[in-house]
């Protein structure tokens, strides 16, 4: 499984960057994205901003992972193998414990109808691919109230 689990303390470089930028404040962000290169890009951007980044590429067990890890922010791709991102989002919103979790929905489908569906399903923010790194960072920061 293409899974990158980067927790604080594992790498000194991560720590250094976290303390250096500090905006992420070590908060945990879960990236659900099946494209490894995109996942890597997001990991790099957020990690540099002081976030703790967990990546996962499979939709099937995504919900269990969220419950287990309790991230401060979820970045969710719509086209996930195993289970659709929007499906996961709806299930997540149905759980009272997770209803308030900020979720950024990312998708390569940039049409208006897709955006509406995403917002109806409970997305906190909708971003079309390709995105600007700065925008993604700003959105992440805003959603967790930094």
């Amino acid at each position: 499984m293409a899974q990158n689990h980067c927790v604080p303390g594992e790498s000194t470089a991560d720590r250094a960057s976290m303390t250096k930028a500090g905006h992420g404040g070590g908060r945990l962000v879960l990236v659900l994205e099946d494209e490894p290169n995109i996942s890597e890009a997001i990991r790099f951007i957020l990690h540099r901003d002081g976030w703790t980044v967990i990546s996962h590429a499979e939709g099937q067990d995504a919900l269990e992972m969220i419950v287990r890890e309790r991230p401060a922010l979820l970045i969710l791709d719509v086209m996930l193998p195993g289970r659709s991102g929007l499906d996961i989002l709806e299930a997540l919103r149905a759980d009272p414990a997770l209803a308030d979790l900020p979720v950024i929905v990312l998708t390569a489908k940039g049409q208006a109808a897709d955006r509406e569906r995403a917002m109806r399903s409970g997305a906190s923010l909708y971003m079309a691919k390709p995105f600007s790194n700065a925008e993604l960072l700003a959105a992440a920061r805003q959603l967790v109230g930094v």
Binding site: E35, I42, A108
Partner: peptide
């Protein structure tokens, strides 16, 4: 869009 996303993101990096 998928490859474009990677390309843009890493270009910015």
């Amino acid at each position: 869009r998928t490859p474009m996303t990677s390309i843009r993101a890493f270009s910015e990096i």
